[in-house]
Design a protein around this nucleic acid. Structure first.
Length: 570
RNA sequence: UGGGGUGUAGCCAAGUGGUACGGCAUCUGCCUUUGGAGCAGACAUUCGUAGGUUCGAAUCCUGCCACCCCAGCCA
């Protein structure tokens, strides 16, 4: 009925999204007409694998472009061939796709812009705003000054434009060795912002580049490459982390000084920290290089590929990023926050099966020797569309050792002398005898079943509180299960005393391999990379190390354990 | 003792002068053929702190305190 004016700048309902300062800025810019289309970029340096902190950045960068019907670019920030590698670029692309990012054909590289950047450097020399410095790295450091004292001008600061032009061209041609000369912006050696004390724009690196090969031996520094790359791509909101706040004035200075085609702006948010893990690429690289983990995709790693292999759904990671929000306050999110998202997602979507991690043999004395019965089992009680499957029941079964106690405490309602339990989907059973080896370890249980309780309910309606999972000894498949614990023992592994190393905080028991688990046959057929629930235990992801006759499962996360909590209180 | 930032519950976080949104965690019940899930309820007299302005302040002003980042030819 009313013909209210619509702004028509959004395509999704962003009013439902939690507000944050970046969203506010974008909405203002759109409303004021400063921009008509949001263009963001995710600028990874291909010097390592992406981690959950990057996922947060991706959700901000990609999310803003998506929410405001804008454009999203993937731009590899490949300005340092010494550290970068093709392997990382491929891995980054794969992780981005897995997270659901779509960058269309907007895949760019800072190295695409080397010619333009070189021309702009020449432009600056001609303007008298850049010079070739012959000082070495130590001399430059010594003359930069300190946080409280100004720096000193380089003796080469006032070379003529002609000489600078000549020297810079010869740098490019390869006439000088690494470190012999650099190109610096001529700004202010006394600036309170250290980034303005004649920042280095180009350094000499005789190093083959993964994309430009040996075309260049001089490479631009981040400060000279990033903003200009943003301008070339017409990025409107260049979103990065807090440590770049001090660089923003320099970012703006280059944009103002150079004849760039657009005026991008930089905004900074707080990077993600998570308890019980480390997030710096340098430290993750050490874990890999020093073989503390099996690789970048070790399921204990906070990398995207590690979490994928662990069985975390991409949608859970994205939900996590939405929930933690975006702000400028340094913070450390509890790992349980992430786990909550993983459980919630998997509860809704993961299929249920029965798997026995720690098998204990059970013989049903009064069950026919050679009979096999099939029961219908729902694949996911949370999702009727998930359907049902048949599970095979036989005289000899395995149950989990945790589901039996000879002398149970109060409120224990799993199998024990005198306690009747339900075998999930099958029958009620009661204990008749316990068998032990010479050391007194329980080796086998004999039980009897109630044929009337077929399907898991009895005609007399008697209450059976405990339900446990089981697998037929005849049809069960042996499996390997890898159980993970946190990689570090302390909330903040980065925090170490002088002279100590963060690796000392590692949890020596973060991996437990169980070789003799037994799972129902359907689990052996699960696709690699799929995560399923082992009823009453947790979620498990089929690993790529699986063999046809020996599936391998990574424990993604356990189910919440009310009994364990109850025990703690006692 | 320079410059740039940030302080709202155990953790994250909304709020932008009108009486603290939400999530995680925690704690109660209820329910349950997963001790899972689900459902219902509890959980900041107060926003780093001390003053000030105002009928009214987490929001505005002033001082103070705490924490984070910056002295790579890394990004």
């Amino acid at each position: 009925m009313s013909s209210e004016e619509t702004t028509n700048v959004t395509t999704t309902d962003n009013s439902a999204k939690t507000s944050n300062f970046i969203r506010d800025i974008i909405e203002e810019d759109l409303k004021s007409g400063k921009i008509t289309k949001v263009i963001t970029r995710f600028p990874p340096e291909p010097n390592g694998y992406l981690h959950i902190g990057h996922a947060k950045a991706i959700c901000v960068d990609y999310g803003m472009a998506r929410d405001y019907n804008g454009e999203f670019h993937l731009r590899f920030d490949d300005t340092n061939p010494v550290k970068e590698d093709q392997e990382y670029m491929d891995a980054i692309r794969e992780d981005l796709k897995w997270l659901g990012c779509d960058w269309g054909d907007h895949e760019y590289y800072a190295s695409n812009y080397y010619d333009q950047l070189y021309d702009w450097a020449v432009y600056m020399i001609k303007q008298g705003l850049a010079y070739v410095d012959d000082q070495n790295a130590d001399q430059i450091r010594e003359t930069r000054g300190t946080l409280t004292e100004p720096g000193k001008n380089s003796p080469w600061r006032d070379r003529s434009v002609k000489e600078n032009l000549d020297l810079f061209e010869r740098m490019k041609k390869g006439e000088f060795a690494n470190g012999e000369k650099v190109l610096r912006a001529k700004i202010d050696m006394a600036s309170p912002n250290i980034n303005f004390r004649d920042p280095v724009m180009y350094r000499i690196l005789h190093q083959t580049h993964p994309r430009t090969g040996d075309k260049w031996c001089i490479y631009p520094m981040y400060d000279f490459a990033h903003g200009q790359s943003d301008a070339i791509e017409h990025i409107t909101h260049s979103i990065c982390t807090l440590e770049f706040q001090d660089h923003r004035p320099l970012y703006d200075w280059f944009i103002k000084t150079l004849p760039v085609p657009a005026e991008p702006h930089q905004y900074e948010f707080a990077r993600l920290n998570l308890t019980y893990t480390v997030m710096s690429k340098r430290k993750l690289l050490r874990l890999v290089k020093e073989h503390k983990v099996s690789g970048w995709d070790d399921p204990r790693m906070p990398t995207i590929s590690g979490m994928r292999r662990r069985g975390y759904p991409a949608s859970a990671i994205i939900e996590f990023c939405d929930r933690i929000g975006v702000s400028k306050a340094n913070s450390t999110v509890e790992f349980s926050q992430l786990e909550s998202c993983v459980r919630e997602d998997l509860n809704k979507h993961a299929l249920r099966f029965m798997g026995i991690i720690n098998p204990l043999k059970v013989v049903i004395e009064n069950y026919p020797d050679d009979l096999t019965e099939e029961f219908d089992a729902d694949n996911n009680p949370e999702d009727p569309n998930a359907g049902t499957r048949k599970v095979k029941f036989t005289k000899v079964l395995y149950i989990d050792r945790d589901d039996f106690m000879e002398n149970p405490p109060k409120k224990y309602f799993r199998l024990a002398p005198g306690i009747e339990v339900r075998l999930k989907h099958a029958y009620y059973i009661t204990l008749t005898s316990i068998f032990k080896d010479s050391q007194g370890n329980i080796t086998e249980l004999h039980c009897k079943y109630d044929p009337e309780s077929r399907g898991g309910a009895s005609p007399d309606g008697r209450r059976v509180k405990g339900t446990i999972q089981w697998v037929s000894a005849k049809y069960g498949v042996p499996a390997e299960v890898r159980v993970y614990d946190r990689l570090f023992n302390v909330e903040n592994p980065d925090k170490v005393e002088e002279g100590h190393d963060f690796l000392e905080n590692m949890n020596e028991n973060s991996l437990t391999v169980i070789k003799d688990a037994i799972v129902e046959p359907a689990l052996a057929d699960l696709e690699v990379g799929k995560t399923a629930q082992f009823i009453r235990i947790g979620y498990f992801c089929k690993d790529k190390d699986s063999q046809p006759d020996k599936p391998v499962f990574n424990k993604t996360i356990g189910l919440k354990d009310g009994w364990a909590k109850e025990q703690k209180k006692a």
